[in-house]
């Protein structure tokens, strides 16, 4: 009886997981299916299968230049936020210093503030300072909201390190710099990579803050929003689907490579 209930318990979680992921992926599956729709004007009703949208992903005005903006902004914001956030994470994770509560608060507050307030307050200051809204104001905003997430992710990784590894390196006459370069940093690196991935996905997907600070520059989420009322072209589905598939392939490839390396 106990065995039976335990077996059921184990599989209950598996069933839940399948249902949870199904729920997560229903709208994505829908997006992928309708990227093959032979649509006219609005992509609402299934009218038959076609390769046409995938052959002409840039066949709608602005869509590919907007995607380019999103990718460029995402890469720059990720690069800057990852560096700034990692430095803060090391300060918090490796040093004792005065003013730690103030730093913790300043890291926590942007995550506790609704995006709307972040976007609106940045807009007020850009207007007051006479900044031209556009590409760089979006980058500034994205770096700002990504930093906290990078700090939290990298700090968790630093906290999970076994301090004995660093002590062992010191015992073997490695100086501080060598220990950092050959032990600490390689161990923290996966955390930094994870933080960068998270920062990029947050930046790439952001709509609310971007909408406030974009001026006339359009990113891919803004393109989708602006065209939703007139009827979204299936090319938007093509781009959404392919970004999703590309991200998935990169991660799976990375997983396979790292597993091979472990075996070798």
């Amino acid at each position: 009886m106990k065995k039976l209930s335990r077996w059921f318990g184990k599989n209950l979680i598996r069933i839940y997981m399948v249902l949870g992921f199904t729920y997560l992926f229903i709208p994505i599956l829908y997006t992928i299916v309708f990227s093959f729709n032979d649509y006219i004007k609005s992509n609402l009703v299934w009218r038959g299968f076609t390769w046409h949208n995938w052959q002409t992903p840039c066949g709608v005005p602005n869509i590919c230049s907007d995607l380019g903006n999103s990718l460029k902004i995402g890469l720059i914001a990720t690069f800057v936020a990852t560096i700034l956030g990692t430095l803060i994470a090391f300060a918090l994770g490796r040093y004792a210093f005065k003013g730690r509560p103030a730093v913790n608060t300043l890291i926590f507050l942007p995550m506790a503030s609704p995006e709307l307030v972040l976007g609106a307050s940045l807009l007020t200051i850009f207007i007051n300072l006479g900044f031209n809204l556009g590409f760089w104001t979006i980058v500034i905003a994205h770096v700002m909201f990504c930093i906290s997430f990078v700090v939290v992710t990298v700090k968790a990784r630093i906290a999970s390190l076994d301090p004995r590894l660093e002590q062992a390196a010191m015992d073997l006459y490695a100086n501080e710099r060598e220990t950092f370069r050959r032990i600490t940093f390689p161990l923290v690196a996966p955390g930094i990579a994870g933080a960068a991935l998270l920062a990029f996905s947050l930046s790439f997907d952001d709509f609310i803050i971007t909408n406030f600070n974009s001026g006339t520059v359009e990113t891919f989420p803004l393109f989708v929003y602006h065209n939703a009322e007139r009827g979204l072209p299936a090319q938007a589905n093509v781009i959404g689907s392919s970004m999703f598939l590309i991200a998935l392939i990169i991660v799976l490839a990375g997983q396979i490579v790292s597993r091979k390396r472990k075996i070798a």
Partner: peptide, 30 residues
């Protein structure tokens, strides 16, 4: 584990607005 974790974040890449519109169409009258 790692693959599933990435799958949790993967929806971000299709765009939040696009997914919400997809829900509207999935649940909509058509």
């Amino acid at each position: 584990k790692n693959v599933l974790l990435v799958l949790v974040v993967a929806p971000f890449f299709t765009s939040f607005i696009l997914r919400t519109i997809a829900w509207k169409q999935i649940l909509g009258q058509q």
